[in-house]
Simulated assay, not measured.
Amino acid sequence: MHGPLAASDECDPDDGALHSHVQRPRPQVHDAAPPAPIASPMSRIAITGARGFIGQRLTAVLRGQSHEVIALGRTPTANGTIRTWHLGDELPADCSTADIVIHLASAALTGSASVQRAAELDIEGSRKLVAQLRRWRRDGHRCRFIFVSSQSARPDARNVYGRSKWTIERLLTEPDEIIVRPGLVYGDPPASVFASFARLARLPAVPIVGARRSIQPIEAGELCDCLSQIATMEQPPKLVQLGAVEPLSFAEVLSLTALRAGRRPPLMIPLPSAPLRLLTNFIDGLFRSRLTERLDGLIGLQPLDTAPSLASLGRTLAPLGTRPAAPGAAP
């Protein structure tokens, strides 16, 4: 059973009509040339969370670029392409020769612990990784650390996930410790928060809260391309914010998700946030889900200024409403 989600406490009566005339956002074009990569075209890169939605794609992208990838995840693959590693463990000894560590792993995304316990594990596990990499640097080995955070990362975030991401970001005070804040990551098959949008987009009607534009999508493959570029740049920015330059409302994202799947957008029914939150709390109690945590994250989401980061990478993002190509289709 899947409950409704929301994007804002503000309620707009025109939200329900958005499905019939939603405008597809135009991609933002930046003229800046991509920065020069590091001297060596091939790097040794360790990835935590390599079995995840982003991690699998990133591993494939980096290996396709001839980088040597140490892929670490909770469950290994039979062919050994992904090795066992758990959040809270130190990295394996052979990672000490890695040029870059990209930290994707998050207990909050596994659903195997309470929200608070998952946040504590994320923070302490990340703290351990940072301390380990700093020891390697003191021993004379340069290793860049890239932490994939979230658009929801704020000290006053409404959800535990956003506050924990902010706490981890505050640990990264030394050079070559990079923070990447992506917006809503989408792709096929849908996963994580986008999977909730995809499920809701199949319903005939969906309750929503507000029309404030704060959601900034980025396609998973484009995010991986950006991460690859950041990993190999000579001097990447300390903070990289990635997502659509023009934020979208919850209703617009839902409509574009339906259109992307070739469906008619659902009817959207504005509701106050209080009864919606009571409903998600009830569903969480029945099914041990995290709908309220995700609802709070969307309600409290604040737009990112992504234009400078996209310009520094020389990147253009495809709009969410773009239909995915059929397998084997010509480009």
Rank of each mutant, 00 (worst) to 15 (best):
A311H: 04
L203C: 09
E90L: 15
P175F: 09
R138D: 14
E124C: 05
R288P: 03
L276I: 12
D9H: 11
P331K: 12
A93M: 10
S40I: 03
H67S: 05
P189W: 10
G55C: 11
E293W: 13
S149L: 12
H67W: 09
W166L: 03
G55E: 01
A93D: 15
A205H: 06
A32M: 04
H2Q: 14
W166M: 05
G321E: 06
G49H: 11
L259N: 08
R144N: 04
K238Q: 15
D305A: 15
L121S: 04
D31S: 13
R158D: 09
I283P: 00
F147Q: 05
A50R: 00
L286P: 02
S66H: 15
R212P: 03
L172H: 10
G300L: 11
A311W: 00
Q65Y: 02
R163E: 11
P4L: 03
L91H: 07
G55V: 12
A78F: 00
N79T: 15
P272Q: 10
C95E: 07
G183R: 03
S126T: 14
G125N: 04
E10P: 01
R290A: 12
P37T: 02
V101S: 08
I215S: 05
P190Y: 06
H103R: 07
V115L: 03
D99P: 00
S214K: 00
L104V: 00
G73D: 09
A205V: 12
S228F: 03
F250G: 01
L223I: 13
T292A: 11
A274T: 14
G73P: 06
A17D: 11
D89L: 02
R158G: 01
V160H: 02
A131R: 15
A201Q: 12
R163G: 08
M268G: 09
C95N: 02
M233K: 00
G16L: 11
G52D: 01
V209I: 10
A98L: 08
M268V: 10
M42T: 15
R63L: 01
R263N: 12
G140V: 05
L313I: 06
L279N: 01
L109C: 06
L18V: 15
L242F: 05
L239H: 11
